[in-house]
Nucleic acid binder design. Structure first.
Lengths: 185, 185
DNA sequence: CTGGGAGTTCAATAAAAAATGAACAGGAAA
DNA sequence: TTTCCTGTTCATTTTTTATTGAACTCCCAG
């Protein structure tokens, strides 16, 4: 079967429950609204192969009007420091999250970039594009190898045509990307 | 580092160079040409979240002019019967592989469907579309929940606008799919 | 029928990916 | 400088996903 996906039901949320645990247990300090939005982004993220925690972090920020600090993110989502740190870094790298204002101490506040277009662009660039590039190179190699193969002419012809078609597809898909990105305004 | 996602190195799976990994006695029954084509499809498949074995099977068939039997597929790729069986089934379900002619006994021959368009369509339908549908439903729920949330008016406004934008994005992406599929001729 | 091989199923296992948390930088305030 | 606190790194653990293989089903040949 194709890509599986966990069906998340939005669990309700109690406002302030276990804020002080040594290590959080999947705790949810989220409002029902926030939980639902987080669910949306977890799903979207998984569809693009991103870890669940990334989707959670982005979703929480997306559902917040104020900048959130590292701690707040961690405790509300019940994630480990490591996950939050890595998640924030990755999200900042693709421009999905942005630093917005300093808190006292060495702390910073984070905000979701809600402009979807550059975000989609970055994701596609990071996932599809590399594969297209790699694939094109491999196809060129394969075309070369086909020449060295000792095959009946008819077979060679058939295979050469298949490779051509695939190459065309790659080219087209490559050309399509910028267009798609532009379309998602 | 960057966005994770499956980015297998898939470097030229040269013929005999894989004396490494203890696991699979992987596929050494392939010509250099076949190995390279298999690599292309393993990569493409992984980019869409398909198991490696699916890509291998499809790739092998794509690189063959004759129908291949179950056994041939299994032994050339060095996969288990189970993997081949499941892989073939999934590939047939999305129309990527087709039964082509019977061999003696209970055996059948398999061929790759080389028409890329319906194939891409099936894959997108199976992966992105369900997520878009689910996401839309969740967004509707979220919009409802936002109403019940006790928030300053300004905040509620901001969030409502964000949800709207996201919903628009979903709609647009949904509308885009058929178009993309049509474009990949 | 019935014997045997082709392919399927699915619980068990292995492999891959993500999350965790303890050790570690490094800055700010004192 | 020293202390304290925030966030990072990365080896380890947990979770998820893919693969295997043995038990099974089914069908054709004999």
């Amino acid at each position: 079967m194709p890509v599986p996906l966990s069906a998340r039901s939005a669990t309700a949320a109690s406002e302030f429950s276990d804020a002080g645990r040594g290590s959080a247990e999947a705790a949810v300090d989220l409002s029902a609204f926030q939980a639902e939005v987080v669910g949306v982004f977890v799903g979207l993220g998984q569809a693009m192969g991103l870890p669940k925690s990334y989707g959670e972090i982005y979703g929480l920020l997306f559902a917040s009007t104020q900048p959130l600090g590292f701690n707040e993110i961690q405790s509300r989502l019940g994630l480990s420091k490591g996950s939050v740190s890595q998640g924030l870094r990755a999200l900042r790298e693709i421009g999905a999250v942005v630093v917005a204002g300093d808190f006292p101490g060495r702390r910073e506040g984070y905000v979701a970039a809600t402009e979807l277009r550059p975000l989609a662009a970055a994701l596609l660039r990071g996932t599809l594009e590399p594969q297209l590039v790699r694939g094109s190179a491999q196809l060129k190699t394969a075309t070369g190898l086909l020449g060295e193969e000792n095959l009946p002419l008819a077979d060679r012809r058939v295979l050469a045509r298949r490779l051509d078609k695939l190459q065309g597809w790659h080219r087209k898909a490559g050309g399509l990307l910028p267009w798609i990105i532009k379309f998602l305004r």
